[in-house]
Computed example of a mutant assay.
Amino acid sequence: MDVLIGVAVGLLGLWLLLILCLFLLRPRGSALSQAVRLLPDVLRLVTRLGRDPGLPRSVRVRLWLLLGYLALPFDLVPDFIPVLGYADDVIVISWVLRSVIRAAGPEVVAAHWPGTPEGLAVVRRLTRT
């Protein structure tokens, strides 16, 4: 019984540490609201990139795993928690897109981008590329 309590406390501690990291890494200012508004374009981008046979398989697998994560009915941080609820999704999307841009190149992402040039600029700012 003590082992189960220890495991539960350890998992809770790890989750709280993750919440703290998300809070510290969350987009500042209007970047979070801009990113949430871009979500439909980003989802189309991820789907288009995931279907591109010219990309390495590892990149496409990351993209499909991202879509799977976003489709799950639960998140690392529930969406009803102010700021952090959507910040975890934005951070996970940013991490995956940053790795995709580094592997495939920014011109491939720009070629698949379905939105406006301003939206692509926000994506580049969020992914720091």
Rank of each mutant, 00 (worst) to 15 (best):
M1N: 10
M1Y: 13
D2R: 13
V3D: 13
V3P: 02
L4D: 14
L4R: 12
L4N: 08
I5P: 10
G6P: 05
V7N: 00
V7M: 11
A8Q: 07
A8W: 15
A8E: 06
V9G: 01
G10H: 10
L11E: 03
L11D: 02
L12R: 04
L14D: 04
L14P: 00
W15A: 07
L17S: 15
L18P: 02
L18K: 09
L18F: 10
I19R: 05
L20M: 14
C21P: 01
L22A: 14
F23G: 13
F23T: 12
L25Q: 10
L25V: 09
R26F: 12
R28V: 13
G29V: 11
S30N: 12
A31R: 13
S33M: 11
S33R: 15
S33F: 08
Q34T: 06
Q34H: 08
A35E: 13
R37W: 14
R37N: 12
L38S: 09
L38K: 04
L38D: 10
L38Y: 12
P40C: 01
L43V: 10
L43A: 03
R44I: 12
L45W: 01
L45A: 07
L45K: 03
L45Q: 03
V46F: 09
G50P: 07
R51H: 11
R51E: 15
D52W: 02
P53T: 00
G54W: 01
L55M: 02
S58W: 06
S58K: 05
R60I: 01
R60D: 04
V61P: 05
R62Y: 00
L63T: 02
L65M: 09
L67D: 01
G68Y: 01
Y69T: 01
Y69F: 10
A71G: 03
L72I: 01
L72R: 13
P73K: 05
F74V: 14
D75E: 06
D75M: 06
D75S: 14
D75L: 03
L76E: 01
V77W: 12
P78G: 05
D79C: 00
D79T: 15
V83A: 14
V83R: 15
L84E: 08
G85S: 09
Y86H: 14
A87I: 08
A87G: 07
D88L: 02
D88H: 11
D88R: 07
D89E: 15
D89A: 06
V92A: 02
V92I: 12
S94W: 03
W95K: 05
V96N: 00
V96M: 02
V96H: 00
L97P: 04
L97K: 04
L97E: 06
S99P: 00
R102D: 10
A103V: 02
A103N: 04
A104K: 00
A104Y: 06
G105A: 02
E107I: 09
V109M: 05
A110Q: 09
A110G: 05
A110T: 08
A110I: 06
A111S: 14
H112Y: 02
W113P: 10
P114R: 09
P114A: 11
T116A: 10
P117S: 04
L120T: 06
A121H: 01
A121W: 02
V122W: 03
R124C: 05
L126F: 02
L126S: 04
L126Y: 03
T127Q: 05
T127E: 08
T127Y: 04
T127P: 08
R128H: 11
R128G: 09
